[in-house]
Amino acid sequence: MLKAIADERNRLNIRQEVSGIGCFKDDRIVFWTWMFSTYFMEKFAPRQDDMLFYVRRKLACVSADNTEGKKVEVEVYRRDSKKLPGLGDPDIDWEESVYLNLILQKLDYVVTCAVCTRSDAGDIHIHKKKCQEVFASPSKHAMDSKGEESKMSYPNIFFMIDNFEEVFSDMTVGEGEMVCVELVASDKSNTFQGVIFQGSIRYEALKKFTVTEERRN
């Protein structure tokens, strides 16, 4: 699947270099609808998830200078639904839909949280760490409340840990330490891996933020 996408991009780049123009819109729709149908609707589609995600771009408004604005929505259907958008529907961004389903269904994600210290030489020493499988989502839950209502966040993708307190309850950080987080993505066969996020925060900064939030409340 990834090779087919890479080949399509190379084909488009070569055509632009040679002729100065890209592929016709209909030509690109044929490729991306074929990708969507083949890898998410037919024999290569994962059996463990029967949901399909469509990125729809609707005309939202026309400004004073006649510039059209597009409103982006994500529609979710079961694979056997009779309401599925037709392949080639011009309002569906088929390339984006392929990418979104690829991110949500074809990759596995593991987040690692560690308590570390940094030596004077700059070396990182890990004192405790835990790994947890997480799932990509085009929506998010509010972090400041216990409500179950979710809001669409696309094009931002969130990786929620619903049982965070249970998993990381014994991960304590003290003075001179820092919390490091790493998110790794891999394909289902674990043929390749890639780090898609790395970050860290020192105890002092975390404490300062906590005190500020307590004062606000």
Rank of each mutant, 00 (worst) to 15 (best):
1 M>V: 04
2 L>K: 08
7 D>Q: 14
7 D>C: 06
10 N>P: 03
11 R>F: 07
11 R>S: 09
12 L>P: 01
16 Q>G: 06
16 Q>K: 08
17 E>G: 06
19 S>I: 02
19 S>A: 04
20 G>P: 03
24 F>Y: 09
25 K>F: 13
26 D>E: 09
29 I>L: 04
30 V>K: 11
31 F>N: 12
31 F>G: 10
32 W>Q: 02
33 T>L: 00
36 F>P: 01
37 S>E: 05
38 T>W: 00
41 M>L: 01
42 E>W: 04
43 K>E: 14
45 A>T: 01
48 Q>W: 05
51 M>G: 11
51 M>S: 15
53 F>D: 00
54 Y>F: 12
55 V>Q: 03
57 R>V: 03
57 R>G: 06
57 R>D: 03
57 R>Q: 08
58 K>V: 07
58 K>M: 11
58 K>S: 13
60 A>D: 05
61 C>I: 05
62 V>W: 03
63 S>V: 03
66 N>P: 04
68 E>M: 12
69 G>Q: 01
69 G>K: 03
70 K>Q: 13
70 K>M: 13
71 K>Y: 04
74 V>P: 05
74 V>S: 05
74 V>Y: 04
75 E>T: 00
75 E>F: 00
78 R>G: 13
80 D>M: 12
81 S>K: 10
83 K>L: 00
85 P>F: 00
86 G>F: 08
92 I>E: 00
93 D>F: 03
95 E>A: 01
96 E>V: 02
99 Y>W: 10
103 I>Q: 07
103 I>Y: 12
104 L>S: 00
106 K>H: 11
107 L>F: 11
110 V>Y: 14
113 C>G: 13
116 C>P: 06
119 S>L: 05
120 D>F: 06
123 D>H: 02
125 H>E: 09
130 K>V: 02
132 Q>P: 12
133 E>G: 12
135 F>A: 11
136 A>Q: 04
136 A>I: 01
137 S>F: 08
137 S>C: 13
140 K>E: 15
142 A>P: 01
143 M>A: 10
144 D>S: 09
145 S>D: 15
147 G>Q: 02
150 S>D: 03
150 S>Y: 01
150 S>V: 02
163 N>G: 07
165 E>S: 15
165 E>W: 08
165 E>V: 13
166 E>G: 11
166 E>M: 09
168 F>L: 07
168 F>H: 06
175 E>R: 06
175 E>H: 08
175 E>I: 07
176 G>I: 03
176 G>M: 04
179 V>W: 09
181 V>T: 10
182 E>T: 15
182 E>A: 14
183 L>E: 00
188 K>L: 14
189 S>L: 14
190 N>L: 10
192 F>G: 08
194 G>Q: 15
195 V>W: 01
197 F>M: 09
197 F>S: 05
197 F>I: 07
197 F>Y: 10
197 F>P: 02
201 I>D: 06
202 R>A: 09
202 R>K: 05
203 Y>T: 02
203 Y>F: 14
204 E>M: 03
204 E>F: 01
210 T>R: 14
210 T>A: 15
212 T>S: 12
214 E>N: 14
215 R>V: 10
215 R>E: 14
217 N>M: 13
